[in-house]
Write a protein that binds this DNA or RNA. Structure first.
Lengths: 196, 196
DNA sequence: TTTGCATGTGTACGAGCGTACACATGATGT
DNA sequence: ACATCATGTGTACGCTCGTACACATGCAAA
């Protein structure tokens, strides 16, 4: 009736409400998780402060408060990714009590973990590409590779460990890229052929 | 002495000389090559019209004339890359006349071609990442994989061909990522262990 | 209770980007 | 010879980006 410009009450709620402040401990952790989601969906190239903030439902300014730069977010996100895979790797191989069980552990690792439906294999390839030009990320990949090899060397000699590590890499990558991914039986066949 | 603003001669050479027009057939091809150079140096994420133009020593406007979009340049560049590797693959395996020679061909392929000093392995990983989100590039990788497998099937059964293809992928990728790349002897050992 | 500071929020700025487009030029077919 | 048009060149526009920064708020120490 009076029109929006006629109201003289300057204490009224401003037209654009300020977002309520939230108590949000471990927002930093949530942001790292959101970063991994964005990387998986849009790739490192499509990962921006604004996109991560949107996924985490957080204002843009929060990004620069918690992280000095985009590089820092990427480094922390990929570190978490590599650690989570390396931990599974460790657990499977530590649990194996002899060589035969170790072979089964490797097979299970590939078929049940690395090629599991929910597992974002593209995240690993994104890491490799990013690491090619980011020394900090190269440290992450190298530590991860070392850890994998160490776990394998619990049961296999160093030469075999290195070769199997490469084979695992190739099998997962190939399955991920193919329209016609390898079946668990084919994975088993390839690994057993190599290790038995 | 009279100062630069005192000259009334409007027919004089303008302060910024227009670049001389050049007769440049197959500039399009040169641009694709320049694109591969840029991708190898800066990654797909750092590949821009302006950067490619600078490497090829060509004005920016030339990019949009020869290619409808950046995607089109990337697709053509990666197609060239994949074809050039697939051709070597074909040649090596076609030349082999029995299984033993085929094994040697695979070893030579990895050690002498894929891991050759001048060969940009990062280009392949860049392709994989780009293909994850670009259907056109996924066609390129799948055609490439099929061609590799076909070449291997000249000498090996389909199951072996697929497994060896994956092994090659893993060996090259692993060598590329490691600070401590595998030696030719180690490559030979891994492949012979699998194929003999 | 008061106060300091870690944390949360909104916005502005300059840079680089893809792309569009107007204009220039010379090779080529007639 | 000359007209045409494929090719070559320069520049402007609108957009998104990373980052900086001023201001708000409430927990915790004193």
């Amino acid at each position: 009736m009076t029109g929006t410009t006629a109201d003289p009450d300057l204490t009224a709620t401003p037209p654009v409400a300020r977002r309520a402040r939230r108590h949000d401990p471990n927002r930093r952790d949530r942001l790292i998780g959101a970063a991994l989601t964005v990387i998986a969906e849009r790739g490192v190239a499509g990962t921006t402060h604004r996109e991560i903030a949107k996924v985490a439902d957080v204002p843009l300014g929060s990004m620069t408060y918690h992280f000095a730069s985009l590089d820092e977010i990427l480094a922390e996100a990929f570190t978490r990714h590599a650690d989570s895979i390396a931990r599974v790797f460790d657990e499977r191989l530590t649990a194996a009590r002899n060589r035969d069980e170790a072979v089964e552990a490797v097979i299970a690792l590939v078929t049940d973990d690395l090629l599991a439906p929910g597992h974002d294999l593209v995240l690993t390839v994104e890491l490799y590409v990013a690491a090619a030009r980011n020394p900090r990320l190269r440290t992450v990949t190298q530590a991860w590779m070392q850890r994998s090899r160490d776990a394998l060397e619990i049961h296999f000699d160093p030469t075999t460990a290195r070769e199997v590590d490469a084979l695992i890499e190739g099998l997962t990558l190939h399955s991920a890229l193919s329209t016609d991914p390898m079946t668990p039986a084919q994975i088993r066949h390839a690994i057993e052929r190599y290790l038995r």
